[in-house]
Deep mutational scan, measured.
Amino acid sequence: GKELVLALYDYQEKSPREVTMKKGDILTLLNSTNKDWWKVEVKATANDKTYERQGFVPAAYVKKL
């Protein structure tokens, strides 16, 4: 199945390749080969529509579930 990670801290994206997350968010882990930056998929809701974004977050800010 898919691997999930838990956001340990809030993170505000600093570039278009990154994604914003809030502490407590559960994210889908896409790639953890880089030890510093993990690629995740974030589900977000805006205007009653759910959309998914993929991007990088600092590996130290998340932990595998």
Score class of each variant (00 low, 15 high):
1 G>R: 14
1 G>H: 13
2 K>I: 14
2 K>Y: 13
3 E>R: 12
4 L>G: 03
5 V>P: 00
6 L>N: 01
7 A>H: 01
7 A>V: 09
7 A>M: 02
8 L>I: 09
8 L>C: 05
9 Y>H: 10
11 Y>Q: 01
11 Y>M: 03
11 Y>F: 06
11 Y>K: 00
12 Q>K: 13
12 Q>C: 11
13 E>I: 05
13 E>H: 07
15 S>L: 07
16 P>T: 09
18 E>H: 06
18 E>C: 05
18 E>Y: 05
19 V>E: 02
21 M>H: 00
21 M>F: 09
21 M>S: 00
21 M>T: 01
23 K>M: 06
24 G>H: 04
24 G>M: 03
25 D>E: 10
26 I>F: 05
26 I>R: 04
26 I>N: 01
27 L>G: 05
27 L>D: 00
27 L>R: 00
28 T>E: 10
28 T>M: 11
29 L>Q: 00
29 L>A: 00
29 L>E: 00
30 L>F: 04
30 L>W: 04
30 L>R: 02
32 S>R: 08
32 S>C: 13
32 S>M: 08
32 S>K: 06
33 T>R: 10
33 T>E: 14
34 N>W: 06
34 N>P: 04
36 D>E: 12
36 D>W: 15
38 W>P: 00
39 K>M: 15
40 V>P: 00
41 E>Y: 07
42 V>D: 03
42 V>H: 15
43 K>G: 09
43 K>A: 12
43 K>Q: 13
44 A>E: 14
44 A>I: 15
44 A>N: 12
44 A>L: 15
45 T>D: 10
48 D>S: 09
49 K>P: 10
51 Y>C: 11
51 Y>I: 12
52 E>F: 15
54 Q>C: 12
55 G>I: 04
55 G>T: 01
56 F>Q: 03
56 F>E: 03
57 V>F: 01
57 V>C: 05
57 V>T: 01
58 P>R: 03
58 P>Y: 03
60 A>P: 08
60 A>Y: 08
61 Y>M: 11
61 Y>I: 06
62 V>S: 00
63 K>W: 08
63 K>T: 13
63 K>L: 12
63 K>A: 13
64 K>I: 13
64 K>M: 10
64 K>G: 05
64 K>Y: 09
